[in-house]
Amino acid sequence: MTNTAEDAYRHILTESIAFLYPAALRAAALLEVAEHLAGGPRDVAELAGLTGASGPYLRRLLRLLASHGTFREDEDGRFHLTPQADLLRADAPRSLRAAVLLVTEDSWWQSAADLAEAVRRGEPAFDRRVGKPFFAHLAEHPEHGALFDAGMAAYSAGEIGYIVEGYDFPDSGVMVDVGGGRGGLLLAALRARPGLRGILLEQEQVLAGNVLPELGADDRWTLHPGDFFSAVPAGDLYTVKNILHDWSDDQCVRILENCRRAMNPGARLLAIDAVIPPGNDPDFGKAIDILMLLLLPGGERTRSEFERIFERAGFRITRVIPTPGTVSMIEAVPA
Rank of each mutant, 00 (worst) to 15 (best):
T2R: 14
T4E: 15
R10L: 14
R10T: 07
H11Y: 15
I12T: 10
T14A: 15
A29P: 12
H36F: 14
G39I: 07
G40E: 04
R42V: 01
G52F: 11
L58W: 05
R59L: 13
R63A: 14
G77Q: 07
H80W: 15
P93R: 09
L101I: 11
E105G: 03
W108H: 14
P124R: 04
V130E: 14
L138P: 14
L138G: 03
A139G: 03
H141R: 13
P142L: 09
P142W: 07
L147M: 08
A157D: 15
E159S: 03
G161Q: 08
E165L: 01
F169Q: 01
G173M: 12
M175F: 06
V176Y: 12
R182I: 12
E204T: 14
Q205V: 06
A208F: 12
E214I: 00
L215W: 12
G216I: 04
A217W: 01
T222M: 12
A231S: 15
V232G: 04
D236P: 12
Y238T: 03
T239G: 13
L244Q: 02
S248I: 06
N258P: 09
R260T: 01
R261D: 09
M263N: 00
N264L: 00
G266T: 02
A271Q: 06
A274L: 07
A274E: 02
F284W: 08
F284V: 06
A287R: 04
D289H: 15
L293C: 13
L294H: 00
P297Y: 13
S304C: 05
S304F: 08
R308H: 10
V320S: 02
P322Q: 10
P324H: 06
